[in-house]
Amino acid sequence: MIKLEHVGLRYGVGPEILSDVNFQLDPGSFHFLSGPSGAGKTSLMSLLYLGRRPTRGLLTMFGQNIGELNRQQISKLRQRIGVVFQDFRLLNHMSAFDNIALPLRINGESEKEIKANVEELMEWVGLGDHRYMLPNTMSGGQQQRVAIARAVITRPRLLLADEPTGNLDDEIGLRLMNLFDQLNRMGTTVVIATHNVALMEQFGYNRLILQDGAVRLMEPKKSIKQRLEGIF
């Protein structure tokens, strides 16, 4: 699904934020991406959602070498990726509904289909009564849910979420993690960047740890429950 070989990234003439990243994600896998603030998690994500090209190294996605694709092919790949941006990036001039509907419209779905799908998902993420609100009049948590709904509405093949539960209370955070989990069960490859150790421990998925410009893979620690089971 995703393969990075000796990937490096720098902004302009600055230092290399990523210097030698090597890892491979299998289709249908679920990974957390963690690491200290400023380590480059968001930067790495931007490579994966094709917002940026690596300054060196080889990036392969959906079995295709990104360096060899033309604009149109890249657009097509992007349509198969859902992204929750750390700063949401909602369009403030249009309603929550239209924000969530946007990827479907880009993909050319019919308005009838769009209405049914968006309304159902909005209900599910607890925004059923806020359909026509403008994002900048919503709370941080509500905005985050709009951003998440927008990322998953197309049932993408790859879901990239950057701190998707940062502004959410535990209950709704869990609910959305379960949404990602369900999508994953349906075949979507998921990468979630987070600092939230409790969350990572609760969902025992593999972790990619980003530090000093490189990534290492860490098998999940056994959850407390599993450890207790081991003792008794």
Binding site: L91, N92, H93, M94, S95, D98, L102, R105, E123, G126, L127, G128, D129, H130, Y132, M133, L134, N136, T137, I172
Partner: peptide, 29 residues
């Protein structure tokens, strides 16, 4: 589930966009 709480409240008019969306960019502003 979460919408339970808000079901009874009247829809707010402030910050609400009922107009039909015509462009993805705020061109008409």
């Amino acid at each position: 589930m979460f919408s339970h709480f808000f079901k009874k409240s009247k829809p707010r008019s402030l910050g609400v966009s009922k107009t039909k969306r015509r462009y993805d960019l705020p061109l008409e502003k």
